[in-house]
Amino acid sequence: MNIGLFFGSFNPIHTGHLIIANIMLDRTPLDEIWFVVSPQNPHKKRNTLLHEFDRLRMVELAIGNHYQFRASDVEFNMPKPSYTVDTLTYLTDKHPNHQFSLILGEDNLKHFHKWKNYEAILDHYSIYVYPRPGDRVNFDHPKVTFVEAPLIDISATYIRDAIQNGHSVKYLIPADVESYIQAKKLFI
């Protein structure tokens, strides 16, 4: 089975993430998308992150019963910060019958050369890239495929700020995620 790994803090997951995941299913040979909740991204500050179990729960609520989406906590028991190459190695060893690929925003591709063992990732895994607002990235490699998708400029930062300021986030996040945030008084 071809599995697309969509890594992220998902702090919170929003409709942009779901739109991109759906487009990747439709326009690539991927059979499933696994939303890998990263407990600690080595390139982000920890003080803005909700607890990893809250973020995982929001991903579970957002994907509901979509049979081709899965929420993954694989990095929760791995050393922190989380490095993509280590997670890929672990998943490949654990699931030898699956072929794993990365789903990456074009903004992350710009800094991909700074990732731990990025050459090993390119040697062994395909990368599907979706466009992000801003400068276009020229990255020519046989394992990198740019996928046509709408430019979605929704950010978790915008959503957190809106919640903190008492503004509506309706349609920016799934209704079940919004209810969870309200019930737990998150981002306030």
Rank of each mutant, 00 (worst) to 15 (best):
A71H: 03
S72Y: 00
S72R: 01
S72T: 07
D73Q: 09
D73K: 07
D73S: 14
E75T: 13
F76Y: 09
N77T: 08
M78T: 13
M78E: 15
M78H: 14
M78W: 08
M78C: 12
M78G: 11
P79Y: 09
P79F: 08
P81M: 01
S82E: 13
T84K: 00
T84S: 13
T84V: 14
D86R: 12
D86T: 07
T87L: 01
T87W: 01
L88V: 01
L88D: 05
L88T: 00
L88M: 11
Y90Q: 12
Y90A: 09
Y90K: 12
L91K: 05
T92R: 03
T92S: 10
T92H: 02
D93T: 08
K94Q: 14
K94P: 11
H95W: 15
H95C: 12
P96D: 11
P96N: 10
N97W: 09
N97A: 15
N97V: 14
H98Q: 13
H98C: 15
Q99F: 09
F100K: 02
F100P: 00
F100A: 04
S101Y: 03
L102W: 04
L102V: 04
G105R: 08
D107I: 10
N108G: 05
L109G: 00
L109I: 09
L109V: 09
L109R: 01
K110I: 15
H111S: 14
H111W: 09
H113W: 12
H113N: 12
K114S: 14
W115N: 04
W115E: 05
K116Q: 13
N117E: 15
N117P: 10
N117S: 14
N117M: 09
Y118L: 06
Y118V: 03
Y118M: 02
Y118R: 07
E119L: 15
E119W: 11
A120D: 10
A120T: 04
I121M: 02
L122N: 02
L122I: 03
D123C: 10
D123P: 01
H124K: 13
H124E: 13
I127H: 06
I127M: 06
I127G: 06
V129F: 07
Y130N: 03
Y130F: 14
P131H: 04
P131A: 00
R132S: 10
P133C: 04
G134N: 07
G134K: 08
D135E: 15
D135K: 13
D135I: 15
D135V: 15
V137E: 05
V137N: 01
N138Y: 10
F139I: 01
D140C: 07
D140M: 08
D140R: 11
D140V: 06
D140N: 13
H141T: 05
P142Y: 05
P142Q: 12
V144T: 06
V144S: 05
V144L: 06
